[in-house]
């Protein structure tokens, strides 16, 4: 498989009245053709801003991509997305890289029919005429499993349920046969049975079409059955990266260990207290000098307060940003009390 995307030293800042928000702090990662990469993290960890920066969808001002390169494409086609002109990036968006968002209601235009919204991209990027685009739109709706697709083409978004709207979004995303589909929390707003439908659909489409996927989520459960590789983000940094089985089986960053330990499991066999991560993520305006996870880390040592560790390989394909060699079995060095945390 050849490399499709390479992100180098990406840095995004928001210049606000309260100060500079360090949303993304120099992240490096790559994606191969046909690969599914999950980016996991809590709200405000920079996972969405990180991918929005790739497509230059960050509102400027207040936002700005202050450093980095985003190499996208294979062979001679390879270009730095951050250096493209506005016209050139528009040719990439929705065409070679498609994006679907969390809330299908707010990302569909309520006053335009579904058919119009899907054919728009087809006419714009693929130069189809109206009739051809309509025909293709029906095919796409059928592909994503919308019953009576031809009849529903002239319906408006409010006439669809949440799960169906997300299918429409996916149909729009796939309309131009993108090489990369970015899905930003696509199942978060949906009920669990609908969530399973959508995850199943995306898996099927991936295998049929062979596109690469970046799946952004806070839900470590969904990712387990879907991703090839996982990146864990915290406070705008990548703190761990590994193949999916390695990450769940042998997490090495204290934050990942904490996250996995804090999830109640449906297949849990015995009662146990959840190991919670006390405290809150740091303020991105005023990032601590050392490791961003320092204040909440049960494994911290002296150096963590002053030095932010770099993301280093610990095993083939497994990178961790931690000063210590921590595993699930490592005993805590400190206990953190919830009341200590100052608001």
């Amino acid at each position: 498989m050849s490399r499709l995307l390479e992100v180098k030293g990406l840095e995004t800042r928001f210049f606000t009245q309260d100060g500079v928000v360090h949303a993304v702090n120099g992240i490096n990662y790559h994606l191969d053709e046909g690969e599914t990469l999950a980016i996991v993290g809590e709200s405000g960890c920079g996972k969405s801003v990180g991918v929005m920066s790739l497509l230059r969808l960050i509102p400027m001002p207040p936002g700005k991509v202050t450093a980095g390169q985003v190499w996208f494409g294979t062979g001679d086609d390879r270009k730095d997305l951050l250096k493209l002109s506005d016209d050139e990036i528009r040719q990439v968006r929705g065409n070679r890289i498609a994006m679907i968002f969390q809330d299908p209601m707010t990302s569909l235009n309520p006053v335009l029919t579904i058919g119009f919204q899907i054919s728009e991209a087809l006419m714009l990027h693929l130069g189809m005429d109206k009739e051809k685009a309509r025909k293709r739109a029906v095919e796409l709706l059928e592909l994503v499993g919308i019953p009576r697709a031809a009849e529903r083409l002239d319906d408006y978004p409010h006439q669809f349920s949440g799960g169906m709207r997300q299918r429409v979004m996916i149909a729009m995303g796939l309309s131009c046969n993108p090489q990369l589909l970015i899905a930003d929390e696509p199942t978060t707003a949906l009920d669990v049975t609908i969530q399973a439908q959508i995850a199943d659909l995306v898996k099927r489409l991936r295998d049929e079409i062979g596109m690469a996927i970046i799946w952004i989520t806070h839900d470590l459960g969904v990712v387990a059955g879907l991703a090839d590789r996982v990146i864990v983000m915290y406070a705008g940094f990548i703190v761990e990266e590994a193949q999916v089985k390695e990450l769940y089986g042998n997490p090495r960053h204290p934050y990942t260990i904490g996250l996995l330990g804090s999830l109640p499991r449906l297949d849990a066999t015995r009662e146990h207290r959840l190991s919670s991560i006390e405290g809150l993520p740091p303020d991105l305006i005023d990032l601590p000098k050392g490791c961003p996870f320092y204040a909440r880390c049960n494994y911290r040592i002296e150096i963590c307060a002053t030095d932010n560790p770099r993301l280093e390989p610990v095993a083939p394909g497994h990178k961790v940003a931690c000063h210590r060699e921590v595993t699930r079995e490592t005993p805590y060095t400190v206990e953190i009390e919830p009341a200590e945390v100052v608001a």
Binding site: T193, A196, G221, V223, A224, G225, V244, K245, Y248, D267
Partner: peptide, 27 residues
């Protein structure tokens, strides 16, 4: 049964072997 099978389990090894009952349609 369907509801339980739809819940993802945060473990890729378990997920690989699970059979899902995917419900059609909406409530």
């Amino acid at each position: 049964q369907a509801l339980l099978s739809a819940v993802p389990i945060p473990d890729p090894v378990v997920e690989e072997k699970r059979k899902r009952i995917i419900l059609e349609g909406d409530v």
